[in-house]
């Protein structure tokens, strides 16, 4: 993989917005890898948490948005709990998800959800799922 870096990438306004929404300072991340190491869904992410932070430092917001990482984050806060710099990748991913949802990019269609699920699953799963996946 090769990326081209410009000032516009490194000083990306989009990334600054993610920082503002999430309240996280991306520059703090020094890529130790603890978040990826402990993340329960890292294995399924197209871009694992450590690399999410790195890509955003490089201003590659679109690449991260296009990946499934932000939709897979369950918000278990294991990354935050063990981050030596006190960063929350979960908050960064949530900010990006919020941004996408505000633009109307729904992850699930309510009408497609299977009936057994709606009947049996705890309400909290559905409420939570709607908030994470539906605008």
């Amino acid at each position: 993989m090769k990326i081209t870096l410009s000032n516009a990438d490194v000083q990306s306004k989009g990334v600054a917005r993610v920082e503002r929404l999430s309240g996280e300072d991306l520059k703090k991340c020094y890529q130790c890898g603890n978040c990826s190491a402990g993340c329960p869904v890292s294995y399924a992410m197209e871009i694992p948490p450590t690399r999410v932070m790195r890509m955003l430092q490089l201003g590659k917001l679109d690449e991260v948005k296009a990946a499934n990482s932000m939709w897979l984050c369950v918000g278990c806060l294991q990354c935050y709990s063990r981050c030596p710099k006190g960063c929350s990748v979960a908050a960064v991913l949530e900010a990006m998800r919020q941004d996408a949802l505000r633009e109307g990019a729904d992850r699930v269609e309510v009408k497609d959800l299977p009936m057994p699920l709606l009947k049996k699953a705890p309400q909290q799963a559905i409420v939570c799922g709607f908030r994470k996946f539906v605008s």
Binding site: P40, V41, A44, L72, V74, G75, C76, Q78, R107, V108, L113, L117, A121, A125, I126, C128, G129, K132, F133
Partner: peptide
């Protein structure tokens, strides 16, 4: 103290 998969129950049985 590890996650059970939480709300991914909605759309991601595999995880």
């Amino acid at each position: 103290i590890e996650c059970c998969g939480a709300h991914l129950a909605m759309n991601n049985d595999e995880v």
